[in-house]
Design a protein around this nucleic acid. Structure first.
Lengths: 197, 197
DNA sequence: TCTTGAATTGAACGCTCGTTCAATGGATGC
DNA sequence: GCATCCATTGAACGAGCGTTCAATTCAAGA
């Protein structure tokens, strides 16, 4: 058998991860069988258990990996001092990242209820950290007198929902380019937080 | 046996509908069995088939019923002549409606991929009609010089995503009342479409 | 050439699934 | 009291589920 070590995986074979990602995104976690995933990889179902302890771990690895990578990627973005510029960076980053990874995004929003409680809590914590990054920007912008927001927490939830929604309708072959879309969402965001220019 | 008539149901017994709604919302369509639904109603699984032809019809009835009721409800709202007032009415209606029916909303966003193609198409059409209602308001507001929106289609998608998101985090027992939340979202919306007051 | 050892198979485990249907049983009208 | 009717039961169907594991395969090291 292959590795069963490293209890909290991320070591799951990349071919298995990719197959599970695609299938979970397309049909949903509960509707996809281990046999389907195995077939996609070109292997028998039993072989998967050399790489993952069970189906749940496969889902959790995907979701945890996605959130951690999202956080790391945002932390790697250079942060302008000006809150408005920082918000713009966030909006553009968020849209780019989400358009680049439609399957991960889909799973991370849709499959939360299929996580076992302990895994769910871990995911919530990661998500909360990301929301707090945006909340920090909004709070500073308000303090600096650049934004006018009656409730920054609601603004965070509203803006993230708005921006994340882009991945439900955007098509590469559509009327608008990515940078068009980025610009439109940034215009809306800028004005929603009460900044004219 | 009971009625099997009325091919495109809505006749599904209310007790069954309610049980299916609650269970689908909580665990997801694929993860809920007919036996679970039956147990919730207090009958054996076989009895369900007197009210619904199959499990898929149960899901489709719920989703179609929700979208049709949403459209009817919006059409019943009195429409102010002023585009900004009309937009305000839409925002407040949308939030109220979605907070009143968290389970229906959840299902209608999460279970689209579990619909058979023909049912999916029917749902998309209904959803599109609702989006078009908002798009009409935005277009008129632009024409009247009240709104400044670079792309009304993207604005529709962004605003609906933002507003619908409220049902993912709002708790009746939370810090804010419904009307607080309505007001905050309306403030953000108003400014996002480029209207100051 | 033989040995080792990990990767994979394929059968099997006990369950649960959606759906069907003959049998049942309890109310209703005569 | 009897016949009728029909909603409901409960067993059964074939299929597929997640998971396990003895047996096999096969490449690399001696």
């Amino acid at each position: 058998m292959a590795r069963k070590t490293g209890s909290h995986a991320e070591i799951t074979g990349p071919r298995i991860r990719d197959a599970a990602l695609r299938l979970f995104a397309q049909h949903g976690y509960a509707a996809v069988s281990m046999r389907q995933i195995a077939a996609e990889v070109g292997v028998q179902a039993g072989a998967l258990y050399a790489y993952t302890p069970d189906k749940q771990a496969l889902l959790f690895d995907l979701m945890k990996g996605h959130m951690e990578h999202l956080l790391e990627s945002w932390e790697a973005v250079e942060q302008p001092a000006d809150p408005a510029r920082r918000l713009e960076a966030f909006v553009r980053f968020h849209i780019q990242y989400h358009l680049d990874r439609p399957d991960e995004v889909f799973i991370s929003y849709m499959e939360l209820r299929n996580l076992e409680p302990e895994n769910f809590t871990a995911l919530e914590t990661l998500r909360r950290r990301y929301e707090d990054a945006l909340q920090g920007i909004l709070t500073e912008g308000c303090a600096a007198g650049q934004f006018t927001i009656s409730d920054t927490r609601v603004a965070v939830m509203g803006l993230i929902a708005m921006l994340t929604g882009v991945s439900t309708w955007f098509r590469e072959s559509g009327r608008l380019s990515r940078s068009d879309v980025e610009q439109v969402y940034w215009d809306m965001t800028r004005r929603a937080v009460g900044r004219a220019g």
